[in-house]
Design a binder for these strands. Sequence first.
RNA 1: GGGUCGUUAACUCAGUCGGUAGAGUAUCUGCCUUUUAAGCAGAGAGUCGCGCGUUCGAGCCGCGCACGACCCA
Length: 497
Amino acid sequence: MKQQKDIIGQRKEKIQKLIESGVELFPNDYRVSHTVKDIQGLLDGQSSDLSEDTRFSVAGRIMAINRFGKSSFLRFKDRTGQLQAYIRKDKVGDDAYDLYKKMDIGDFIGMAGPMFQTKTGEWTLLADSLRLIAKAMRPLPEKFHGLKDPEKRYRQRYLDLIMNPEVRDLFVKRSKLVHAIRMFLIDRDFLEVETPMMQPLPGGADARPFKTYHHALNMELFLRIAPELYLKRLVTGGFERVFEINRNFRNEGISTQHNPEFTMLEFYQAYATYEDLMTLTEEMFQSVAKSVNGLSEVEYQGELIDFSQSWKRIPLLDSLEQIAGVDPALFENKEKLMNFGLSKGIPFGDQARESVGIGKIMTKLFDILVEPKLIQPTFITGYPVEVSPLSRRNRENPDLTDRFELFIAGREIANGFSELNDPEDQKNRFLRQLDTKEEGDETPEMIDEDYIRALEYGMPPTAGEGIGIDRLAMLLTNSASIRDVILFPHMKHSEKS
RNA sequence: GGGUCGUUAACUCAGUCGGUAGAGUAUCUGCCUUUUAAGCAGAGAGUCGCGCGUUCGAGCCGCGCACGACCCA
């Protein structure tokens, strides 16, 4: 007989013995009367229900075992928390105790019995019956150090969630965050909608899309890079306040700030302006931060971020002047502005000299010289038309738009603007975008004619905004990497087992 | 794309000068009916990420590759 000596092999031998003795490894008829939290609630109230006559039926995963000869302590957890149980041979009987001796850390166990206090005063379930509920074939990571290897944590998130309670708490917070946003908008009469993830033309942003193919329709489709153009069709259709919280897909690099699929909130409000949305955003963040953390401030990577006051609103050009030290005279001259950037060590691609206008130079300077310095929540307003193809022109300066971006902790968190609802202007801007399309861009040489047509039917004056949910989640959970707030971040295929 | 670091038992990690692969936890056996990372005695467990090279000899040195982390672009 070949002896398997690795842990999984040992475990499988034990399982074989359990099967031979007639134990069901994966029953599904166990009924739970109380969660751990239910019991702890009774303990806090020192309820009379804790008398010896009251039995609790609980279930969960075994996390630790202290075995003695004919008795044993174990710690198990369910979705609500951890609890200790005490198993005595003379309480559960010989057969059950033999079964228990073959059970392992990681197994799911069901137990029933009253609560009692140990010598040290810890409330503990005194099991008078127990059952195996689900067998674990693989051992859990070590109890003290847990699972630390970041690669394994991302690739096997279930293990990360079992072993690291703070990870579990983080994703609970993320869920609360999304819920709080939803409630905030619904309270303000916004309608939640779902628009296509697969689009014949990827619009609403400037990014490389994922391409796919629908065989029955015999057509190429793109995973959406933004829902914007569909949501505005809905505003045209009479849904004057809409929002969508859903995934966008961008076929670009992966980093601590970028995942190929990420979650975006977009919302649109008719008869509002970008200035209204800035105020709404302040209210939303204050409300959401309180729902998630109980505070309207949060510590992020050593900086205390305060959402409670109203936030600075700085025009883009002023920010370049005040924060990056750019001489405003340079704003009139693309060459001189670019030379200023080069003197600061900012590389511009070769084609920047030819096809790109001064607006893109300005935003490039901003990205490098200003953005990292915007730690407290700050709205930057007045973006050049050139980089804002869907935004309404500013009344006083038609080269700029009524648009803002929100920066917190040196990062872009939100982008909003008064929407361009003039179909002629919109069509011309789409056409101009086609002219400046970069080489290698696989997006079809087409503009979204139906979106133009929708605008031609008339869209009310509207303001809209997108907020990166992952980045907001990072902020509210003090996470340095986007992977820490995405349950299953994308990884390369691994050859390791 | 570039740089730095990492990959050793199920997990967390040591591994000196290139000379038989180590610890703790976990696992297995025995003892133990109030433990708290329980205790005591014993045992088993390794494709040292993968490949090539240098060498009498490579976990360790060199080259290449894979995957990951961080920084830079």
